[in-house]
């Protein structure tokens, strides 16, 4: 009887949180969501050309949860952050780990996954060593980290370009997020390089990835955070996680 009473009390407290997003949903206008299309398994185009990946599907789930119509658009990482920071798009599901100073007005959601960075190179190549050129994705936290330390950096547009630079021998090493490294591992040419992954657990390179939100839509952050909590509780998040990544990243 007491358990039943507790259950009733629990149910009584739930509706306020559960329905809030959906009711607002109906928010009339469509949301413009920026994603990458060259960062598998987080964000890429499938065989039919449709955008998919962990970040894309999480963004879709959030849109469904808040009842909004979302229009996905592709931008490079740096452009995506800038576009949302300037209010020309509503969301950027591009795995933002930190907020560049010039985008201080950018709003960030609760973390939607946690990651770390890998130094990919032969065992005898030290990070920052003279004559070592490291590939990074342009506009990424890894690029900022490497440049702050005066490393020789070769910035490319995407994780795919990093892999190509490695296999082509343009660079001797790469500093990439673990998701990109996971995807590179699937590539035979890359595996033949025999690079050793070294985990970088410094605060700038590991931690929590967030969704960028337009500073013109402050109310949207609360909706996105609530929706994120709900999809983590109702299993949607874990199904997407299992679909694109070999382990839990939250």
């Amino acid at each position: 009887m007491l358990r039943g009473l507790l259950l009733v009390l629990l149910l009584c407290t739930l509706p306020a949180g559960q329905d809030g997003g959906a009711s607002r949903a109906a928010s009339s206008e469509a949301l413009r969501v920026l994603v990458l299309d060259d960062a598998p398994p987080m964000s890429y185009r499938d065989a039919s050309g449709q955008l998919t990946g962990f970040s894309v599907e999480i963004a879709r789930a959030l849109c469904r949860e808040i009842g909004a119509t979302c229009l996905f658009d592709v931008k490079a990482l740096g452009q995506a952050v800038q576009t949302v920071a300037e209010g020309r798009a509503d969301l950027a599901a591009v795995g933002i780990f930190d907020k560049p100073e010039q985008y201080s007005k950018l709003l960030l959601s609760k973390p939607y996954y946690r990651s770390l960075s890998l130094w990919l190179a032969r065992p005898d190549i030290e990070p920052g060593a003279a004559g070592v050129l490291a590939a990074v994705v342009s506009g990424s936290a890894q690029e900022r980290y490497a440049r702050q330390r005066g490393w020789s950096v070769h910035a490319v547009r995407s994780a795919g370009a990093v892999r190509e630079a490695l296999t082509a021998g343009t660079v001797q090493a790469a500093l990439v997020p673990m998701e990109s490294a996971l995807d590179m591992q699937k590539n035979r040419s890359f595996r033949h390089l025999g690079l050793t992954p070294t985990v970088y657990s410094s605060a700038e390179l590991s931690g929590e990835a967030m969704i960028g939100i337009s500073p013109l839509r402050p109310a949207l952050r609360e909706e996105i955070d609530g929706a994120l909590d709900r999809i983590k509780r109702n299993g949607t998040y874990d199904r997407i996680n299992s679909r694109f990544l070999p382990f839990r990243v939250s």
Partner: peptide, 16 residues
């Protein structure tokens, strides 16, 4: 084997 070890390394280093 290296692919599996790579996944193990990532998991063992993951903040979770």
């Amino acid at each position: 084997r290296q692919q599996s070890l790579f996944v193990v390394t990532l998991i063992a280093s993951h903040p979770s």
